[in-house]
Design a protein around this nucleic acid. Structure first.
Lengths: 207, 207
DNA sequence: ATAAAGTGTTTTACGGATAAAACACTTCTT
DNA sequence: AAGAAGTGTTTTATCCGTAAAACACTTTAT
C-alpha cells in the first residue's frame, strides 16, 4: 500500500494553501539524481518565508515556520488519506460519523454526533440521511423525548468500519515513515502541547 | 489583539474533524479551578485514541498521535486566523492570491497563481474576477499569446496586503504563545522534515 | 392549565469549490 | 499552409456546507 496521488483533471492538491500562500512544487535542486541526501533542499514554506523576507525585511516571519508548515502538512496528508476512503465509497465526514459511533460504541443522537465530529447539526442531518439510505446506520426514536432519535451502526456499518480503520491507520503510518520513531514521538508530544493550548484559548466556548 | 472565536449560530468549529473523529470539547477535570497546572489533562486526540484502544486493543494507534493532532491543530488555527481576515473583507483563498502577487512581486498569470496557491484554475478565475471588481488587482493582456493575461496588485491591493500581513503574522504568533521559543523551533524543524518527506512522496507529480 | 422560553433536529436559500467540458489560442507536424 | 495536438483560461453543472429559519417538541413560569 503505497501512498499515491488521487489525480483528477483540473485539481491536484487539496485546495487552499492555508498559510501565507505556500509555493509551487518546483524543487530548488538541479538534475534530480538518485536518493543522494542533499540536506539543503528547501520545503515550500521555507521558500515562501524567504520571499516574504525579501519584501519585508523587518518582518518576523517565525510564526510561519510553524503555522505554514502545519497547514501544508495537513493539506498533503488530507489529500492522501482521502483517497483510500473514497475507494470504500466514503467521504471523510462520513467516516468521522461512523467512527464516532464505533469508538463510543453506543447509540448517539444527531446532536451528540455533531459535537463529537465538530460538524454543524445541519451537516450531520444530511450525512445521516445518506448513511441511513446506504444501510450503514439505523435510527431508533426516543420514547421519552419525541424530538430526538438514537443512531447506531448496522452490522454492515460496523463491519465496514472494522475493515477500514486498520487500513487507514496503517496508511497514516506509512505517511510518517520518513520520520524515525524518536522524532514521531517528539512531534506528537509537541503537537499535543500546542493542541492543549489551542483548545484552552479557542475551544473555551465549548462546554 | 487576543485570539478569540468567530462565533456563528449553528457552527462553532471549522467543520471536519479531519482525523479519526476527534472528540467533544468537554475537559476531563472536575470543577475548573484557577490556573493550576494540572498536567494530566488530556487533549481531544488522546481521548479518541483511548476510545479506539478500548474497542480494538490490538490496534497500533500511534499514527493518530501525530496525524490526528495535526488535523485538529490545523482546524483550530484555521478557524482562528480566518476571523481577522474576514474583518478586512477577505476570504483566506483571496488572501492567498494577493499574497502570492505581493511576495513574488511581479505580474502573474492565472495559471501561475493557481500553482502558487494550490488552487484549481476554475477557482482562481472566480477569485480574480472578484478581486478585480474590488479594485485590488488589475489585468493586462499578453501581446504575444492572447490566451493569457498578467495580473498585478493595484496600489490599493498592495496597500491592503501590506497592512494585513504583519497583523496576520503577529496574530499567528499569539496563537503559538503557549509554546516557548525552544519548542516552537523544535516544532518548526520537525514539521519541516515531515513536510519535505511528504512533498517527496505526494508532491512528486508536480513539476 | 396555559403561555413563554428553551432545546434538538430538519429544512431552505445560498455561496463556494470542484470536475468536466468548452473556448480561444498557439505550436507542432507533415 | 493546413490540420492535429497541446496549452491556458473560463464556463457549466453539480455537490456540499453553512447560516438562518422553521418545526416539533419539552420544560419552566405563572
Amino acid at each position: 500500500m503505497t501512498p499515491v496521488r488521487d489525480a483528477g483533471p483540473d485539481r491536484w492538491a487539496g485546495e487552499g494553501a492555508g498559510g501565507y500562500g505556500a509555493g509551487s512544487g518546483r524543487r530548488t535542486g538541479e538534475g534530480s539524481r538518485g536518493a543522494e541526501d542533499v540536506e539543503d533542499v528547501e520545503d515550500i514554506v521555507a521558500r515562501v518565508m524567504r520571499q516574504w523576507q525579501r519584501i519585508h525585511p523587518e518582518l518576523d516571519t517565525a510564526p510561519m515556520a510553524v503555522i505554514g508548515r502545519l497547514n501544508r502538512c495537513f493539506l498533503l496528508i488530507q489529500q492522501a488519506t482521502d483517497a483510500p476512503l473514497r475507494r470504500h465509497g466514503l467521504t471523510r465526514p462520513e467516516f468521522d460519523v461512523l467512527g464516532a459511533l464505533r469508538r463510543l460504541d453506543r447509540e448517539l443522537t444527531p446532536g451528540e454526533i455533531a459535537r463529537e465530529t465538530f460538524a454543524s447539526g445541519a451537516a450531520v442531518t444530511k450525512r445521516l440521511r445518506l448513511l441511513e439510505e446506504r444501510g450503514l446506520v439505523t435510527r431508533r426514536p426516543d420514547d421519552r423525548d419525541r424530538r430526538v432519535s438514537h443512531l447506531s451502526l448496522t452490522d454492515e456499518g460496523r463491519a465496514l468500519m472494522d475493515r477500514i480503520l486498520p487500513e487507514q491507520v496503517s496508511y497514516d503510518g506509512s505517511l510518517l515513515a520518513g520520520l524515525d520513531e524518536e522524532r514521531r514521538r517528539e512531534l506528537a508530544d509537541l503537537l499535543g502541547e500546542l493542541l492543549l493550548r489551542l483548545e484552552g484559548q479557542l475551544g473555551a466556548h465549548r462546554f
